[in-house]
């Protein structure tokens, strides 16, 4: 409802780590001076592999409204196969942004002309040395490149902290590689 709250909806599959990714961005945003950083996961019935989403709200001031996002400013999609299953762009503002883990160029996706940032996060994560299928660190690099909202260095630090004991350097490298290889353009 408040106009100065940035609303980001994350789409992924249960077990893919969308919640962890949103949490990392929340931490980095807070460290960058955003006093409001509220992350609300899908409530109740998460299952591995099922389509899930999580809401992240970011603002300069404390956020009081915890209700789910209905008209996001941006959507982040961790898995391009979700595009066939879920209307990920539901409610997305006309001038909204799509950040997508996919293999095609922005112009090949249909989001009614909205801006799209695409990165083959799956591939770059393997390139960074992570086991196949880990995409939640890489997608953060694409987010930083596409939005400029939070500096990549702050995000890399937040990634290393969150993944401490779980290949922190490789996860940070995956994010850096994704950052360097994100294409931003207009959709169909």
């Amino acid at each position: 409802m408040k106009k100065d709250i940035l609303e980001i909806r994350w789409h992924g599959r249960g077990g893919q780590g969308a919640i962890t990714a949103a949490k990392i961005v929340a931490n980095a945003a807070f460290a960058s001076g955003y006093k409001g950083a509220v992350m609300t996961p899908t409530f109740g019935t998460e299952r591995r592999g099922a389509a899930i989403f999580t809401s992240l709200k970011i603002a300069k001031e404390k956020i009081y409204d915890l209700s789910p996002i209905t008209t996001p400013d941006m959507i982040i999609v961790l898995d391009h196969t979700l595009l066939d299953e879920v209307n990920v762009a539901d409610g997305l503002k006309d001038d909204g942004l799509v950040i997508l883990n996919g293999a095609k160029s922005p112009e090949e996706y249909d989001f009614q002309g909205r801006k799209v940032a695409v990165c083959n996060v799956t591939q770059h994560a393997v390139q960074a040395g992570l086991p196949p299928g880990i995409v939640n660190s890489g997608i953060i690099g694409a987010f930083s490149k596409a939005t400029g909202l939070v500096e990549i260095d702050v995000l890399l630090e937040a990634i290393q902290k969150e993944f401490s004991g779980k290949r922190p350097e490789l996860n940070a490298k995956a994010a850096q590689l994704a950052y360097d290889n994100t294409a931003v353009g207009g959709s169909k």
Binding site: A26, K35, P41, F43
Partner: peptide
């Protein structure tokens, strides 16, 4: 429950 228990905030 959920609204606070499972929501993340500073």
């Amino acid at each position: 429950g959920y609204l606070l228990s499972h929501t993340y905030m500073p």
